[in-house]
Design a protein around this nucleic acid. Sequence first.
DNA 1: CTTGACCCTAGACTTAACTCCAGGGATAGG
DNA 2: CCTATCCCTGGAGTTAAGTCTAGGGTCAAG
Lengths: 136, 136
Amino acid sequence: MSMQIGELASKCGVRIDTVRYYEKQKLLVPSGRTEGGYRIYSKVALRELRFILRAKSLGFTLKEIQELLTLKIDRENQPCSSVKELAEVKLKDIEEKLTELGRMHNALTAITDACCGGEEPATACSILDALDKEDS
Amino acid sequence: MSMQIGELASKCGVRIDTVRYYEKQKLLVPSGRTEGGYRIYSKVALRELRFILRAKSLGFTLKEIQELLTLKIDRENQPCSSVKELAEVKLKDIEEKLTELGRMHNALTAITDACCGGEEPATACSILDALDKEDS
DNA sequence: CTTGACCCTAGACTTAACTCCAGGGATAGG
DNA sequence: CCTATCCCTGGAGTTAAGTCTAGGGTCAAG
Ligand SMILES: [Zn+2]
Ligand SMILES: [Zn+2]
Ligand SMILES: [Zn+2]
Ligand SMILES: [Zn+2]
C-alpha cells in the first residue's frame, strides 16, 4: 500500500539516489513523510515513477518527461495534439540519430571490410589509409 | 607550408580551443613554437588533425583515436589485425546503439500513430495511456 | 608608438543524469 | 541499551568533449 524509498526504488530497479534526484527535478513528489522525516510513497507514486521510466526508455529526457507529466496531470484540459507534438519531436530526434549512426555504420563497414585483418604490418591498412587520405 | 593555430583551426572547421584541447589530450602536437611562444603547425600537423576529425566522424572517441594514432605512428610494426579490431569494436558499439534507437523508434511510432492528435482533451490519449498503463 | 588582430596560460564552466560522500537521525529486534 | 539497517541533507564528483574567461604577451601596419 505504502512504502519507503528503498522499496520503491527496488520495485522499479533504480537506485535510491535516483528517486531523490527525480524529486529534486520535480518529477516525483513523495506522498508524504513519516514523523521522523522518511519519505513515504503510495502506489500512485509507484505508478508515476514507472511512467517516468517508461518515457525514459522511449528516449525522452527528464526535461521532456516533465512536460509530459504537466500534460498528463491536466489531461482534461490539454489536447491530444500537444502530447502528440512532443512525441513527434522526439521521433524526429531519434530519426536524426538513426540517420547519423547509419552513415557512420556504412562508412566504417566499408573501410573495415577492405582491411585484411591479418598479422602482417599495417603499412597499407585500408582503415588507416582511409583516415589518413590526402584529399577531402 | 606552415601556419599558426588560427589558420589550422579554420582550415579544419574547428575552434582554436579545440585544437589546444586535442593537444592537451596528446592527440596533436604542434610542429614547433615561434620565439614568442606561438604554436606553429606544418602541413603534416594539418593532416593529423584531419585524421582525428575523420575518425571522430566515424564515431571514435578521442581516447580511441589515441589508440588509432598509436598504431598509425608505428604502422610498420603493428599488424592490420590490431587496427581492424578497434574498428570492429566500434562497429559493434554503433550497432548496439542502432538497435536500441530502432527499438525506441518502433515503440514510439506505435503509440504515436495511435494518437489522434486532435484538439479534444487528452483524457484517452494513447500516448499518455501507454506510458501510464497499469501492467508491466 | 599605438592599434588591432592574433596568440598565450591556467583554470573554471557547460550538459545530462546520475552517483557518491560525510555526518548524522530513525526504527526494529534482541 | 545495543546493533543493524534503513533513512536524512547538502554538496561534491563523474563523463565527454569541448567552451569560455581573465589577464596578459606578440606582431605587423601605419
Ligand atoms: Zn592488411
Ligand atoms: Zn588493415
Ligand atoms: Zn486523441
Ligand atoms: Zn493522443
